[in-house]
Design a protein around this nucleic acid. Sequence first.
DNA 1: TAGGATTTGTGCGTATGTATT
DNA 2: TAATACATACGCACAAATCCT
Lengths: 230, 230
Amino acid sequence: MTLDMPDSLLTARDRFDRLHADLRARICLLDYAPGTRLSEETLAAEYGVSRTPLRRVLARLESEGLVQSVHGVGTFVTDVDIEELAQTYQIRLELAEMTGRLSPVPPSPDLMARLARAADRARTLVTAPDPRAFAQLNMEVFLARLSLTANEALREFAERLYIRTARIWLKSVFSSRVDLAEETEMFLREIEEVEAALATGDLHAAALIQRAHISMSFTRMKTGRRPGRG
Amino acid sequence: MTLDMPDSLLTARDRFDRLHADLRARICLLDYAPGTRLSEETLAAEYGVSRTPLRRVLARLESEGLVQSVHGVGTFVTDVDIEELAQTYQIRLELAEMTGRLSPVPPSPDLMARLARAADRARTLVTAPDPRAFAQLNMEVFLARLSLTANEALREFAERLYIRTARIWLKSVFSSRVDLAEETEMFLREIEEVEAALATGDLHAAALIQRAHISMSFTRMKTGRRPGRG
DNA sequence: TAGGATTTGTGCGTATGTATT
DNA sequence: TAATACATACGCACAAATCCT
């Protein structure tokens, strides 16, 4: 999955990227729930590095809003309040649409293949729900779809906003606030619709589908699970 | 201007913010032109700290795209190519409009006062052009106007994008690609229009004015200075 | 090609801040 | 209130990488 090379061939930046991506995934997938304290010393020991490069990673995560360090107290995984969540989703709606309008890029065969594989995995998850596996699949698809715009700044911000709120959505799955089976089905339908739009070359339509699904996802999260289902 | 307290009362975060804001301003105002090497040791000595906290600031600036560090070589102020500049301006247009549409906040008396003072300074600059003073005024006004939206994520991204391209615009002033007097006049007119819009409570109009001026500014930069003027 | 000079990256001990007893 | 424990922040020495002679 990640870079598996002898450390002798890994540059400092590679090591940074690996640690950053790994810790970010752990936070986004709720391996570290909001409020959890991340021990610099423990993590450094686990990754086999000293505290110095690890602190650099934590500082980056702090600038991304995923953790917060307090001198003398500790470094804690942040939580997101409902107001900030709503604002972030509003922006994500706009950015999703912009993705199909500004500097659109035709889908590569690789992207189409990824989507097909993702659809397969989603079909499996519909029959055997798994919150963490679904969240990971969701993240992979989101990041892959960013290749549909050539606008670097747009990609960067869309990714940052997604990363910032993904775990909150996952939290509402674990708390049974939303129905995992329903979420998985909706996700599968979204992928299929996007595949169809991309197959016809309608990039703007693919973006609008994403926008619609982001909107619906947030609505389901706000409304909460309807009793009588599940 | 900046925090002038005995160091004993400054927290680590305060020192970080000070160094960050200071270095960022130097880069944005072209005190450090693109390509300039920033010596960790020299800067640490200048600010009276060790390399460690300074490196933390440089790492942040790198995540913001203002510098780039290469192991064994140095840390250099980045440049922005025309393609990335165009993409960034496109996003800025959209964000400017969104500022007036999503979570708008009525202008505080403090903001109105700042705009009035800025207009005064702009009138002075029209008669006595000064690129650096104008760039600084422009940045102050931009950052102040961010208080017109309560959407934290929107503020953050708008600021990041502005910071990323401000120096490129200033560079085209220094290279006489655009006419400083004309830019100053346009800026003054923008402030006056925004003041009028805000006075009537029309926040969306104020945002659209900004969007229009961002667009015109980029057009002037692309087109270049018309011969026969100045 | 080799070696020295210079730069960023890393490891570790210590200072500083916070919470608890 | 003071002291102890433990966390992050800092300073410094050294390793690793690059460039130039």
